[in-house]
């Protein structure tokens, strides 16, 4: 297979995104498969570790799958402002002072 431009860079960034978000190869493959990905789980794992190249379209489907999974992750906790808590307590009728 003839490699396309930046194929290796795309691969290593996809892999980094998977690792950083703590996704398992199984989860990634399942989503990629439901997006009509054609390559099996072992090959996806081989691709992510850099052992085997994939055609650009499959790489993009994989990227899409990873991004959708990342979007589905629970968002990080947000910090409340000083009046947020007062407003929330007033709204819920909870009178306990913290």
């Amino acid at each position: 297979m003839t490699p396309f431009p930046y194929a290796e860079e795309q691969r290593s960034l996809i892999d980094a995104a998977v690792v950083e978000s703590g996704l398992s190869v199984g989860d990634v493959w399942l989503r990629y498969f439901s997006l009509s990905g054609d390559v099996d789980e072992y090959e996806v794992e081989a691709y992510l570790t850099g052992i085997m190249p994939l055609p650009p379209l499959e790489c993009d489907l994989l990227a899409l799958a990873v991004n959708e999974l990342i979007d589905d992750l629970p968002p990080r906790k947000r910090a409340p402002f000083s009046d947020d808590l007062a407003r929330a307590r007033a709204g819920s009728g909870d009178t306990t002072q913290q």
């Binding site: 399942l30 498969f33 439901s34 997006l35 009509s36 379209l57």
Partner: peptide, 29 residues
């Protein structure tokens, strides 16, 4: 759910191929 989702992608590809005269790979892209 995963097979159903694949099915939808397949149908959507087919619709684009028919409607816009694309190949399968072009439709997916």
């Amino acid at each position: 759910a995963s097979l159903r989702s694949r099915d939808l992608v397949g149908m959507a590809k087919g619709i684009l191929m028919q409607r816009e005269g694309l190949t399968e790979a072009e439709a997916l892209a």
